[in-house]
Every structure is written in structure tokens, then in C-alpha cells.
Amino acid sequence: MSESESESEPEQDPESEAPEPDAPVDEEEATERALLFGVWDVSDIEYRDPSTKRYITVTPVAHTMGRHADKQFKKSEISVVERLINRLMQTDENTGKKQLATRIVRDAFEIVHERTEENPVQVLVRAVENSGPREETVRLKYGGISVPKAVDVAPQRRVDQALKFLAQGTRSASHKTTTTAAEALARQLVGAADYDLQTYAISQKEEKERVAAAAR
């Protein structure tokens, strides 16, 4: 009895105490992974539009190095922040300049936070939801006559159109002016999130829906 007890006791004590100091380190690493640009938390984002919720993905990764390009429509699985960055690159000045576009978005987020005291990622999600048109027109031909017809817009296309309008508004407001691209983008995000009709993205959405309503 005494020999078996003496052999079993020293084997259990060091193993039971080993994993305890590692627990807080894992929690700190998990919180760091959830921060976009090392600053913004993306774990508690609210969605007001259930139709586009599936296609507005928010992750702390802002550069996936083109992993979504191997399959059609896989772009909806990457972060909406990276999709905005990619849209900003689709201009003559920023073509292929991913780091420059990323810096513009990062600086714009800081400006949005200073003005609204909100999480800029939440402001971006709300701006995309508000800027996506719900109706647009297509051209149908009847006997050689082209007739406009109003159609519903798919949720994925709504997100694409919203990001396009935000990028176009940023470029038009900062091209050949003293306004920086980050300042112009911040104005677009804040205005679209508040549904300001003077914002380029909201005005384009209203125009498309107005033309579609006339073609019903």
C-alpha cells in the first residue's frame, strides 16, 4: 500500500498545475484577433436589413491576398472593409495600390470615430445597407422597341452597388480638390449612415429607385 501511493502521488501534481498559466494568454490572443487594424472591434456588429445581412461579412482581416478570386460570388465571404478597399483601387490614381487604399480607409475610420463616437465598422455596415438600391430598370425589346422595366435588385448586387457608390462619391469629392480621400470617404460613410440625401451614394440610390418607380 505505501509503495503504490508513493509512486502515484508525484505523477499527478505537476500535470494538473501546468495548463493554468496558459489560460490568460489565449484570451489575450483571441481579443487581438478580433480587432480590425488593431483598434476596432468587429464582434458586436448590428444589422438592420435582414436581406443583406448574409452578404455583408465583417472580419478583422483587411487583406486576404485574393483568396476569394478562385470562385464566383465568393467575394461575399470576405470582409466588407476589404471590399471597400478594393473598390477604392478601381481608379486611375489608386490602381494596384492596396496599401494606399488601406491607409485611406484606416484614416477615414479614425475621422468617423471622432465625429460620431461610434464604431466606424458599424457606420460602414449601416451606410452599405442604406446605399443599396432595392429596384432598378432593365431594357426589354418588343418588336424593335426598347421598353424599360422595373425589377427587384438581388441582395448581393445591392451590396455591390452600395460599395460602388461610396467609392465613386469619394473619388468625385477628392479629385482635383483640397479635400483628402480619407476626409471624403468619412463624409460619405457618415452621410450614408444617416441617410443624408446630399450624399452621393444616397442620391444615386434614390435616382435609381425613382426611375424604377416610373417604369413599373
Rank of each mutant, 00 (worst) to 15 (best):
D44N: 09
Q168R: 07
S174Q: 10
D13I: 13
A192L: 02
E15M: 13
A201R: 03
T178W: 14
H63Y: 15
F109V: 01
D152W: 03
Y200I: 02
F73K: 10
T31W: 12
T57K: 03
D152Q: 13
I78S: 03
S43L: 12
L185G: 00
T102H: 08
A34R: 11
S51N: 14
A18E: 15
S76D: 14
D44G: 08
K74G: 01
L197K: 08
R106K: 15
N94F: 06
Q72T: 14
E129I: 03
Y195L: 06
D196T: 11
A127N: 02
R87P: 00
K97L: 03
V25N: 12
G144C: 03
W40L: 08
A193P: 06
E135R: 15
T102M: 13
Q198F: 06
V61W: 13
S203L: 07
I111N: 01
L84R: 01
A181C: 05
R187F: 02
L84A: 00
D13G: 07
A23I: 09
E110A: 13
L163F: 05
Y55W: 15
E29T: 05
E209W: 05
R33M: 13
S2F: 09
R33W: 12
E206V: 15
E135M: 12
D70V: 15
D196Y: 04
G96R: 03
A201L: 04
Y195P: 04
R103C: 04
H63P: 14
G144R: 06
M65Y: 05
D194E: 15
K53P: 04
E20G: 10
R48F: 11
P10F: 00
P50E: 01
V42F: 10
A184S: 08
A182D: 06
L84V: 00
E93S: 14
P24Q: 08
V61C: 09
P10D: 04
M1C: 03
I56M: 09
R216G: 09
P133R: 05
V128H: 06
R171F: 08
D152A: 11
S131V: 10
F109H: 05
P10H: 03
D196N: 11
A173M: 02
K98W: 04
D196G: 04
S131N: 04
A108C: 01
P50N: 00
P155M: 02
V121R: 08
A34T: 04
